[in-house]
Every structure is written in C-alpha cells, then in structure tokens.
C-alpha cells in the first residue's frame, strides 16, 4: 500500500481530502501556494476533527493521530516524497498544466499523479507528463469528509495498475469508489444534468412554480431536495459553470444546453444561499 499522500491545494476539497486520508492512516503532505490558505485549512481540519471526537465519529487517539500525520508544506518540492499526489488546486487548466509539468520533475518514477478535477480531461492533463499511465482522476465530492463517493476516472493512457491502486486507496479511506472513463462530467455531473435542465425548462415554460416543482420532486418522487433548492445550495454560478462545461465538451449536444434563467441569475448576482437570494430568499 502506498503510504505518503501529497495534496496540492488546501482549499475546500484539498483540506477535506487531507483529513480523510490522515484518518485512514496515510501520511499527508499538504501543499498550497498560499500560506494563509494552508494555515486556515489546518485550523478547519482541527476544528472538524474536534467535532468528530465530540460526536463520536472518531476516537481521541484517531483524531490526534490524524492531525500529527498532516504536515503542511509551503515548499512544492517537498511533494517529491509522495507515493501518490492528489491535485486539488483551482479548476483552471493552465494552473493544472503547470502543476503536472512541475510534478513530473520531482516525483519518483512510479508515483501516481491524481487530480480531483470536476471538468477537465484526465487524458489531456496526463499528456503533459512523461508518465501518462500513472495519471488518473480521483474525483471526491463536497464535503469530502462526509461524501462517500469517489469517481475514479481513467484517461486513455492510464494503466490498470494505477486505477487499481487509487481504487484500493479510496476503499482504505472508507469511500465507495466507482470506475468511469474520461468523458465530460464523468458520471454524476453528466447524468444529473436533466434534473436541473428539465426543471428550469418547466419553470421557463410556466408549467409550475419553482416551489411547486421542488415539492413534487420531493413528495412524489422521494428526492431529498428539489432541483431549485439544490441549485440554490450548490450556487447558481457553480451549477451554470458545470452545465456550460459539459455542454461545450459534448460539442453542444442539446440535452445539456444551459437555460437563460441560469445566466440571468448569474448576471444579477442572485446566486442562491450564499448571496441570500436565488430561487428562494434566505434570511
């Protein structure tokens, strides 16, 4: 079993993944370009582990052990010691390209390079390295500490061994990994599109109100949240960006076409819960 995990980007996802990996017994090197981000992330992890202890989700020794296993690192080259690197920096192909080119120079030849990207191609990221066979997608969900799913995404050159290794790693972290090939939106972000897309069309056509649609989907369909409540929670801008990305990557397949209502809301800055106004009003 690979022992040392390097994590790049100590944001929402990177910090969460670091915590999960450390709780599972991996040694974690957590790196960020921003010292402040690194510090804030360590604080968040501490707070979260403390809460896990209080609620009995983790024992005191698990939590303190995990904390000692996470080493914050400002120096990029320190990641050279990792057996597996999980990249969770910003979703920007240029940034990721630079990171993978640099990683290629410092890691051991057999190290695995994973990315947590939601929308970029694993194959194109892999093509920047000398070892595309060891580049793989490891797509966690937010928040990583709670969400069980990990999509393991195989680029066109990713080896079976690489896929197997990260699969075992995800299992060791207590996750439920699924396999997926390198296609736009992978499984979840693609298959979920109609949930929002058809709901927006129904609203736009005046078939029912947003409240009504949410209620129908919950009470008649048994979903935990309706599409509009969910979009408000995710953020209208985030949801719109994912839709656009899947739509464009599928060369404008009409099933994925974004809806003008989304764009209008993004332009208006009514982005859901985080702005206090979306499809609903929040206090």
């Amino acid at each position: 079993m690979k022992k040392t995990v390097g994590i790049i980007g100590a944001g929402t996802m990177g910090g969460g993944i670091a915590q999960v990996a450390a709780l599972a017994g991996f040694d974690v090197l957590l790196h960020d370009v921003s010292g402040d981000a690194l510090k804030a992330s360590m604080e968040r992890i501490k707070g979260d582990l403390r809460k896990s202890m209080q609620t009995g989700r983790a024992t005191a020794s698990d939590a303190t052990g995990a904390l000692t296993r996470i080493r914050p690192r400002r120096e990029f080259n320190d990641l050279g010691a990792a057996d597996v690197v999980i990249e969770a920096a910003v979703e920007d192909l240029e940034v990721k390209k630079e990171i993978f080119r640099a990683l290629d120079q410092i890691v051991a030849p057999r190290a695995i390079l994973a990315t947590n990207t939601s929308s970029l191609s694993i194959t194109s990221i892999g093509s920047l390295t000398k070892t595309p066979e060891s580049v793989v997608g490891m797509h966690f969900f937010n928040p990583p500490a709670q969400m069980k799913l990990v999509e393991i995404v195989r680029g066109s050159q990713t080896s079976d061994e690489t896929v197997r290794t990260v699969y075992e790693m995800a299992l060791a972290m207590g996750k439920t990994p699924v396999f997926c090939s390198d296609t736009p939106g992978f499984i979840v972000n693609r298959v979920a599109r109609p949930f929002y897309g058809e709901a927006l069309r129904l609203l736009g056509e005046g078939t029912a109100t947003a409240e009504q649609i949410d209620r129908i989907v919950r009470l008649s369909g048994g979903f935990r949240m309706g599409p509009f409540e969910l979009m408000d929670m995710i953020g209208i801008d985030v949801n719109y960006a994912v839709t656009k990305s899947v739509y464009e990557q599928f060369f404008h397949e009409p099933r994925f076409r974004p809806h003008p209502i989304q764009r209008r809301m993004v332009e208006a800055g009514t982005l859901g819960r985080k702005t206090g106004l979306g499809f609903y009003r929040y206090e």
């Binding site: 969900f141 969400m147 069980k148 799913l149 999509e151 439920t176 699924v178 997926c180 499984i187 979840v188 298959v191 979920a192 949930f195 369909g221 048994g222 979903f223 935990r224 949240m225």
Partner: peptide
C-alpha cells in the same frame, strides 16, 4: 454514483 454523489433515493 447517483445515489451517493447526489443523494437520489
């Protein structure tokens, strides 16, 4: 993926 990733019933 859909039940765990998006909480579909």
């Amino acid at each position: 993926a859909m039940t765990l990733g998006t909480n579909y019933p």
